[in-house]
Simulated scan of single mutants.
Amino acid sequence: MKLEFHHINFVTEDVDRLYHFYTDTLGLSDIPISAFPRPKETEDTGYSGKIRFATDGKMQMHLAEKT
Results as ranks from 00 to 15, higher is better:
24 D>H: 05
9 N>R: 11
55 T>G: 09
52 R>Q: 10
5 F>M: 14
48 S>F: 05
34 S>N: 07
38 R>D: 07
20 H>I: 00
42 T>W: 13
13 E>W: 02
64 A>M: 15
13 E>Q: 03
29 S>D: 13
50 K>S: 08
13 E>Y: 02
37 P>R: 04
35 A>G: 04
43 E>S: 10
29 S>V: 07
60 Q>T: 12
42 T>Q: 12
36 F>Q: 00
53 F>D: 03
41 E>S: 07
14 D>K: 14
32 P>L: 01
24 D>W: 00
56 D>Y: 08
63 L>W: 00
4 E>W: 07
22 Y>V: 10
50 K>V: 14
43 E>M: 12
12 T>Q: 01
21 F>P: 11
4 E>N: 11
54 A>P: 04
25 T>P: 05
56 D>G: 02
25 T>M: 14
5 F>A: 14
57 G>H: 12
60 Q>F: 01
3 L>A: 10
6 H>Q: 13
37 P>N: 04
48 S>C: 11
45 T>L: 15
47 Y>M: 13
34 S>C: 05
13 E>T: 02
30 D>P: 05
20 H>R: 10
16 D>F: 04
5 F>S: 12
51 I>G: 01
47 Y>D: 15
59 M>E: 01
4 E>S: 11
45 T>H: 09
18 L>E: 07
62 H>P: 00
21 F>A: 10
19 Y>H: 10
49 G>P: 13
61 M>Y: 03
47 Y>A: 11
34 S>D: 03
59 M>F: 03
25 T>Q: 12
34 S>P: 01
37 P>I: 07
56 D>R: 03
64 A>R: 02
63 L>V: 02
30 D>H: 08
20 H>P: 01
8 I>N: 00
12 T>S: 15
50 K>E: 13
36 F>G: 00
30 D>R: 06
32 P>G: 02
50 K>I: 13
22 Y>L: 14
4 E>G: 07
53 F>R: 04
42 T>Y: 14
21 F>Y: 15
6 H>C: 11
50 K>L: 14
40 K>Y: 06
12 T>K: 05
48 S>P: 10
10 F>C: 06
25 T>S: 12
23 T>N: 03
20 H>N: 05
64 A>F: 04
29 S>L: 12
18 L>D: 09
31 I>C: 00
29 S>K: 12
29 S>P: 05
13 E>I: 03
33 I>N: 09
66 K>F: 11
29 S>W: 03
46 G>I: 10
7 H>G: 08
21 F>R: 08
50 K>G: 06
55 T>R: 08
49 G>Q: 13
